[in-house]
Design a protein around this nucleic acid. Structure first.
Lengths: 341, 341
DNA sequence: TTGTAGGCGTTATCAT
DNA sequence: ATGATAACGCCTACAA
């Protein structure tokens, strides 16, 4: 099996075709105007015969272009990220780039390691990062070294790179308005640790602003560990007690939280929307199947990926422009969980 | 911004440290026994100062090792694949490899293109493929060229490469046994086009064998287009008519089909398990939330990824062994949709 | 302990 | 229309 014949090189092709490697190189790069019809055919034949493919590393070494784009996501297993990656991949491939995907698991240290290893050795020509938010300095530094960087979904503290997100602020307000208009008198904000995650921060701000709460005196903010189901249940019960039978709804900051809340609601045997309303980020294919249907916000993750990829390629090709924030519109899907009647 | 200073090379480091590139190279590869404490420190200082990183392409060119593993999946956006990729990524990174992920969208042509472009230019050292099943020849050929290939989840017609899947055959039988034991008298097999997809084929075989049906006379096999919701509804109604009020259940070949069936069941206003039972592949985090809970089979996708990665790295490192089929155990999660009481 | 020189496979410059 | 040759940045005999 596995024939150990070394891969053919441009030299072998040259020898077999009885021309110099220069000519082969020209052939490979489509510069046919520099050779006779006959030579061209002969080379073609030899190339096919040997099944020759130019070595990318030699090419990259020479040209300083790898055709590789680095993608750093926080959690590839989440629907949001995997669709994001799909969008990135589709566009990149269309444009002749391949992507190297790395997964940080929301761990800033891993993020640092990947960033450094990706750009370190000239490996990638550009970077699309869904950052933990804890490495602004490093990103900044890499940016200064000249590598194009695009932020996907999550922004940095300062707008230093092109950033593709969705309309977190306005859509959160829209959703809250919808909930209030539906008759809910109290709305809690359920979130994972906010930290430096820009999406969560923005949504939280929108929540505070909408209800005109002061940052630290907002009554119904629950920052929880979604793996601690008991904690989630307690939070829900606490919220319900405090609202004292008045119509109350939960706004979930993202899909992970929504799911945890849903699970706890089921465990507590509560009825939506009568006992508790629910609305929040991340729409799923099954959102209609869980009674009474879950009102949720659908993010344009595929499009975010596509835009990010377009932008990074534009930068690679030399686009000079001030860093820009691009907000793609998301969609509110109203379903039973917020229909109070 | 973007300082255009060229990246430092080993030469510059050598000059600044006032030693030869050889010594620098030794330093970079940790061969400290060949230099004095002092030289070593001096070099370290210069490296830090220049923020020097060796160029991977030059290294790869020289060593013929890229540290890259190609991953070809059929649908990165599906939970199954994204978790698979996560498993692959985690293991590869632990072992110092990066992965290039490509997404075929179940398109054999794209699959061919990616395979060729990945191995073509020496780009990757090994390949993990979740194949459409339509490119056995090409895979075979690439294998003969000497590149390690591992198949993840889906096998080829002949066992030519290490293949990591799960126990499709036995688990399908288990699940069917469970359904029958629960009192369902008829079980239909709902599937997407089977084609050359080995997972689907195996599950189908298990179904036929279990009920001792002849391939073409099995009464309740529905091969459908899951995007055609009307088609799915019709299939369900057809099945129910034919079973004439006797307890009947659907076995769904994968998560996409399960979801389509669930949606149709809801649209038809059927009650599970009374009007129809459901059981099938792919367990989700939300399977308990859709009443009465969906009985399903949880595949070890993360582990499949990890095993595939281990294996491909072992092959890269020179492991010679007959191709092996590794079946990882999956788990049947029994819930309300098959509890006839 | 350190250095010299040649080569990995391509491409680009300058000849012919 | 075609070739010789020198890079690209790194590694590794072989020397010293």
């Amino acid at each position: 099996m596995t024939s150990k014949r070394r891969k053919p090189t441009i030299d072998m092709v040259a020898r077999q075709s009885e021309v110099s490697k220069t000519t082969i190189s020209r052939f490979l790069n489509g510069k046919y105007e520099y050779m006779s019809e006959e030579t061209r055919n002969r080379i073609q034949r030899v190339v096919d015969e040997l099944n020759y493919r130019p070595n990318n590393f030699a090419r990259s070494l020479k040209s300083n272009r790898s055709g590789l784009i680095g993608v750093v996501v926080a959690d590839i297993a989440s629907p949001f990220s995997s669709i994001l990656v799909k969008g990135i991949g589709d566009l990149c491939n269309e444009r002749g780039y391949q992507i190297i995907t790395t997964n940080t698991d929301e761990d800033p240290q891993k993020e640092r390691d990947y960033l450094e290893s990706l750009v370190g050795g000239e490996m990638v020509e550009g970077l699309i990062v869904n950052t933990t938010g804890m490495n602004d300095d490093l990103l900044s530094q890499l940016g200064h070294q000249g590598i194009p960087i695009i932020l996907a979904d999550r922004a940095m503290e300062h707008l230093e790179f092109d950033t593709i997100t969705n309309d977190n602020y306005s859509m959160t307000r829209n959703a809250l308005k919808h909930v209030v208009d539906s008759g809910f008198e109290h709305v809690a904000f359920f979130t994972q640790q906010i930290g430096r995650n820009s999406a969560r921060r923005t949504r939280f701000e929108a929540y505070l602003d909408f209800f005109e709460f002061e940052p630290n005196t907002a009554p119904f903010v629950y920052e929880l560990d979604t793996n601690d189901s008991q904690g989630v249940r307690k939070a829900i019960e606490h919220f319900r007690q405090r609202t004292n039978g008045r119509p109350a709804a939960i706004f979930a900051v993202n899909g992970v939280v929504s799911l945890a809340v849903l699970r706890s609601i089921a465990e507590l045997g509560l009825h939506m929307p009568r006992d508790i309303g629910l609305c929040g980020y991340d729409d799923w294919e099954w959102a209609t199947l869980v009674p009474p249907g879950i009102t949720s916000i659908e993010q344009p993750s595929y499009e975010v990926g596509v835009e990010a990829a377009k932008r990074v390629i534009a930068r690679i090709k030399g686009l000079k422009a001030k860093p820009k924030l691009i907000e793609l519109p998301s969609t509110l899907r109203v379903r039973g969980s917020t229909k109070l009647k």
